[in-house]
Design a protein around this nucleic acid. Sequence first.
DNA 1: GCGCAATTGCGAATTATTCGCAATTGCGGA
DNA 2: TCCGCAATTGCGAATAATTCGCAATTGCGC
Lengths: 142, 142
Amino acid sequence: MNESDRKILRRAGKRITPQRVLILKVIRESGGHLDADEIYRLAKQKAPRLSLSTVYRTINVLKEAGVIEELHLGEEHHHYELRGEKGHHHLICQDCGKVVEFECPFSEQLMRDLGEKYGFEIAAIHLDLVGHCAECRREERK
Amino acid sequence: MNESDRKILRRAGKRITPQRVLILKVIRESGGHLDADEIYRLAKQKAPRLSLSTVYRTINVLKEAGVIEELHLGEEHHHYELRGEKGHHHLICQDCGKVVEFECPFSEQLMRDLGEKYGFEIAAIHLDLVGHCAECRREERK
DNA sequence: GCGCAATTGCGAATTATTCGCAATTGCGGA
DNA sequence: TCCGCAATTGCGAATAATTCGCAATTGCGC
């Protein structure tokens, strides 16, 4: 966990615990899209007494603090990724679950325009395209 | 249920049952964003023996047939709306849960461009902006 | 270092959704 | 029109994802 993460948590009145440091590290090093159980399993390797509740509680803390973001990738549970990185949007294959990230040149514009139009202060934008990837379509045609 | 709904279901090899007709009617007449339990409660008024399982099963049938679409509005359960209508995107207030629909002038373009770029056949686009509506911000400042 | 509120681990509870099965029913064909 | 049977339903139990209650532990301001 870097200095800015610490500041963010402290500003939110949260303590820096080894569990939180570890969980954030796992999310950061995975490079994206883990779900709660994957985070739990990976983190448990380093801290065997870690509990799943703590993972969920930490996810909520990090979510509220704005450090990570919750994704809905079409499965019945959530996935999480670090916030504020480039290429935040997702192209999701409905057949194999593959996720491709992309950048949207319109995002910023949309946030401003729509925020203004409807009086909203926009905090985040979620843009997901679901469909069928090239491989799965090829598979399909066989 | 109109003629085209029937055709869609029959093409998918599904029977037209009173339960399915009713559930689709409830979704259609609500004008948008019901969750499974709301659909259940509304439909049960007309058909008291209706079961929640049937609601979920019908939702899945309608979803697979492409008649309705699943929304993730930030709560722990899903909401559903008719597909293929204009103004499909959502501005969601994180504080009060209000949902405002809007049209995105870039959607079509994005589907074509990104589909081509990554070899995906895009089936749907989900664009959600989450933030704080005017009323809730006013409330906040008090 | 001390004290205490925040946090943790545990297992039980809750919520959303699916499943198994026997009874019922839509609908294609005689 | 009515028959037969596979699809569908209702029910209650099962599963999956997430949260909660509580006693024990632990960061961190003083």
